[in-house]
Amino acid sequence: MKTIIIDDERLARNELKRLLEDFPKINVVAEAANADEAIELIDEHQPDLLFLDIQMPGKNGFELLEIIEDRVPEVIFTTAYDEYALKAFEYNALDYLMKPIDSSRLAEAITKVEAEIKRTERLSSDPNVQYLTENDQVFVKDGEKCWFVKLGKVRLFESMGNYVRLHFEDQKPMILKSLNSLEERLDPKSFFRANRKHIINLQWVEKIEPWFSGGLLVTLKGGEKSTPLEKIEISRRQAIKFKDLMSL
């Protein structure tokens, strides 16, 4: 696994590299002391994994992920602060390691990464994978409420950490699933990954506008008269795919 270590402390980077020597599948191809350096290295190496510090001079780790949102590899956060744990998983991080890093916890984190990469590769290479289409119905349970909803009625899937919120009619239940795993099951002809946090149902797009830095802003039709219209930003890189998908 091509890996980049991003941490403003040289000693912390060196210690992590030393620990990673026990894991032959991890190939540290580069290291960065800040987000700006990391962006260039990520573009150059297209890594499978980032070990990412949160508190850094300039842009922090979360801001870095916002910038590279369309090409984010697997992420393991490394930090001396535990107050960011919940937010880290909102960014679909696979693990959150506290400094000083314990070798056994590091092994657990790497096992998670290996399992996730294998799962993704298996799904992408399996010609028999059956996508869920807009005509499929799914069972949704949130607390004491249950729904049996046709996917064509779901206009938006929104990442909420380890959960995904479904928007249909005037309902917004949550399911215990990551947006990445859900994306792998949805028919790409009907459902489009707009950005790190959202998958939109293309049948519900009402309006498309140019947006900042080459992105697009799409307006989704409301589920009910009382439901406000939802505006979702399509990031610059995804906007290119969106235009190709929607063009003649």
Rank of each mutant, 00 (worst) to 15 (best):
K17M: 12
D48S: 06
L94F: 07
E40W: 10
E44F: 15
E31C: 06
F89C: 04
K25M: 14
A35C: 04
L97N: 00
N27G: 10
E69C: 07
E66L: 10
I39V: 13
E66P: 08
E108N: 14
N135D: 12
I76M: 05
K87G: 10
L86D: 09
A33C: 12
V138F: 03
K87D: 11
K145S: 13
E134H: 07
E144F: 14
P127M: 11
I68D: 01
Q55N: 09
G143A: 12
G61L: 03
P127A: 13
V75T: 09
E37V: 01
V72P: 04
L123E: 03
P100H: 09
F148E: 09
I42R: 02
D70I: 08
W147C: 13
N92F: 07
E31I: 03
D126S: 13
N128D: 13
M56T: 03
D142A: 13
C146E: 14
V72Q: 04
F62G: 05
Q55F: 05
K153V: 12
T79S: 10
Y131T: 05
A38V: 00
V140N: 14
L19Q: 15
N60K: 06
E63R: 01
Q130G: 11
V138Y: 02
G58V: 00
T133C: 02
E40R: 13
N135Q: 13
A93K: 08
L151S: 01
A109H: 08
V75W: 07
K118W: 04
E15L: 11
N27L: 15
F139T: 13
K112Q: 14
H45D: 00
M56C: 03
D102P: 10
F23I: 02
M56A: 03
E144A: 13
Y84G: 08
D43F: 01
H45F: 07
V29S: 01
L64H: 04
E69K: 07
I67V: 12
I101A: 08
N27K: 15
I68C: 01
G143W: 14
I117G: 01
R105Q: 12
E90V: 12
L64N: 00
P73T: 05
Y84S: 10
Y84W: 09
S125K: 10
L106H: 08
E114A: 09
E121F: 02
A85W: 12
Y84N: 09
E144R: 13
P24W: 06
L20E: 01
L94C: 08
T78E: 01
I42N: 00
R122Q: 10
L49N: 04
K118Q: 09
A33N: 11
D126Q: 06
D82F: 05
L151W: 00
H45V: 00
Q55W: 07
E144H: 14
E90Q: 10
V138Q: 01
K141Y: 13
L86E: 11
G143F: 14
K112S: 09
V72C: 02
S104M: 11
K118G: 06
E108R: 15
N34F: 08
P24S: 06
L65Y: 01
R119E: 12
D82Y: 05
D36G: 08
A38H: 01
A33Y: 14
T78P: 02
